[in-house]
């Protein structure tokens, strides 16, 4: 009895380990930016081609959404952003990642523009600094310019209601004080 049970115990332990592993999401690469000063966001605005610098957003919490007109996930989460724009004081910045200006503008005209600012990043240079690897990605930056959260992939209604808005609100209130 004693001898037979050892392989069984090892088998159960390994099975548990594998079951735990299967429940993890390997697509989710933890961002080293969380808790760090946000990379600079210097670029051109999509609509006016005038320079933009994220310094104008100082002293308030804001959201950065990385999107592109060629990105299907972006189209999925896009209608849900109405909920974000309804929040008084919420600043949503769009980073138009590796896209053509005309395609991006057409896309916004067609589907609506929830962004307060849209910055172009045709070569993906800014995206590289932010560690973007799979659009859409959304970052939450606090009033001190520290990256607090990152969501990879299309946001769901549930995520927006239960994670994005509460997390932003908390930082927003802290920033206003």
């Amino acid at each position: 009895m004693k001898r037979a049970s050892w392989p069984l115990i090892i088998f159960i332990m390994i099975s548990l380990l594998f079951a735990l592993g299967l429940m993890l999401n390997p697509r989710e690469v933890p961002s080293p930016l969380i808790g760090q000063q946000a990379p600079s966001l210097k670029g051109q605005k999509l609509d006016t081609s005038t320079p933009f610098h994220a310094e104008v957003l100082h002293h308030q919490a804001w959201l950065l959404n990385v999107w592109a007109s060629w990105c299907t996930g972006c189209l999925v989460e896009h209608p849900l952003f109405k909920q974000l724009t309804q929040q008084p004081g919420l600043v949503l910045v769009g980073l138009n990642y590796k896209d053509e200006a005309k395609a991006a503008q057409d896309w916004l005209n067609l589907h609506g523009n929830p962004y307060d600012y849209v910055i172009t990043d045709p070569q993906g240079r800014l995206g590289l600094d932010w560690g973007v690897y799979a659009v859409p990605e959304t970052f939450l930056i606090d009033a001190q310019g520290i990256v607090r959260r990152k969501w990879v992939g299309a946001l769901t209604q549930q995520q927006i209601e239960q994670e994005v808005i509460p997390a932003w609100q908390q930082l927003h209130i802290a920033g206003v004080k």
């Binding site: 080293p32 590289l128 600094d129 932010w130 560690g131």
Partner: peptide, 8 residues
């Protein structure tokens, strides 16, 4: 690279 994408 690690500053942007982590140890991954």
């Amino acid at each position: 690279m690690t500053q942007r994408y982590g140890d991954f």
